[in-house]
Simulated assay, not measured.
Amino acid sequence: MTETDPHLIYRGRFAPSPTGRLHFGSLVAALGSWLLARHHGGEWLIRVEDLDPPREIPGAAQAQLATLAAFGLMSDLPLLWQSQRHDRYSEALSRLLADGAAFECRCSRTDLAAVGGIHRACVAHGPARPPAIRLRVADDSRVAFVDGLQGRIEQAVDREVGDVVLRRADGFWAYQLAVVVDDADQGITDVVRGADLLDSTPRQILLQRALGLPTPRYLHLPLIVDAEGQKLSKSMAALPIDDHAPLPALRAAWTALGQPAAALADAPSVAGALASAQRHFRPEALPKVRHATFAAAHNKPVAGAV
Rank of each mutant, 00 (worst) to 15 (best):
V123W: 08
V306G: 12
R95K: 10
A297L: 14
D266K: 12
L264Q: 07
R279F: 04
F145P: 11
A303Y: 00
T255C: 05
L250F: 00
W81Q: 08
R193M: 05
A102G: 06
L207N: 04
A144G: 13
Q82H: 14
L79G: 07
P18H: 13
R11G: 07
D242P: 00
Q82R: 10
G12P: 09
E160L: 15
D140H: 11
Y10W: 13
R88E: 12
Q64A: 11
H86W: 05
L8T: 13
A261C: 06
R47F: 02
T19C: 12
P58G: 07
A292K: 00
M236P: 11
G151Q: 11
L22G: 01
Y175M: 11
I205N: 05
A156R: 15
D87I: 02
Q186K: 06
L207T: 07
F294S: 02
D242W: 00
G212H: 13
A174G: 12
L8N: 13
A195Q: 05
A102Y: 08
P6H: 06
A303K: 04
A113N: 00
G171K: 03
F281M: 08
R168T: 04
G212I: 13
L68W: 01
F172M: 13
S108K: 09
E284I: 12
L221M: 03
G258M: 05
R290Q: 14
I133V: 15
R159G: 07
V28E: 00
D87S: 08
E284V: 15
E91W: 01
V179D: 08
G72L: 01
H291Q: 05
H23M: 02
G171F: 06
L247I: 01
P214A: 11
L73D: 01
L206K: 03
D170A: 07
D163A: 04
L211A: 13
G162P: 06
L232Q: 05
A265C: 03
G117W: 06
F71W: 03
R168E: 13
R290I: 03
D242N: 02
L97K: 10
V28Y: 00
A15F: 02
M74W: 02
Q259Y: 08
V180Q: 05
R251N: 01
G116W: 03
E160P: 12
A15W: 02
Y218F: 15
D196R: 05
G126L: 14
D111C: 09
H40W: 09
H125F: 03
S26P: 01
Q82P: 10
P260M: 11
A144N: 07
A144P: 07
G229K: 06
A267R: 09
I153T: 11
A101D: 10
G59R: 02
G212W: 11
P222C: 01
L73N: 00
T215E: 14
V179G: 04
A275V: 06
P78Q: 08
S200V: 08
G229R: 08
V48G: 01
P283F: 08
I205A: 06
A37M: 07
D76K: 03
P246H: 00
D170G: 08
A61F: 08
G12W: 04
A60E: 04
L206Y: 01
S83F: 11
A70S: 09
P6M: 05
A253E: 00
L264M: 07
P53I: 05
G304D: 15
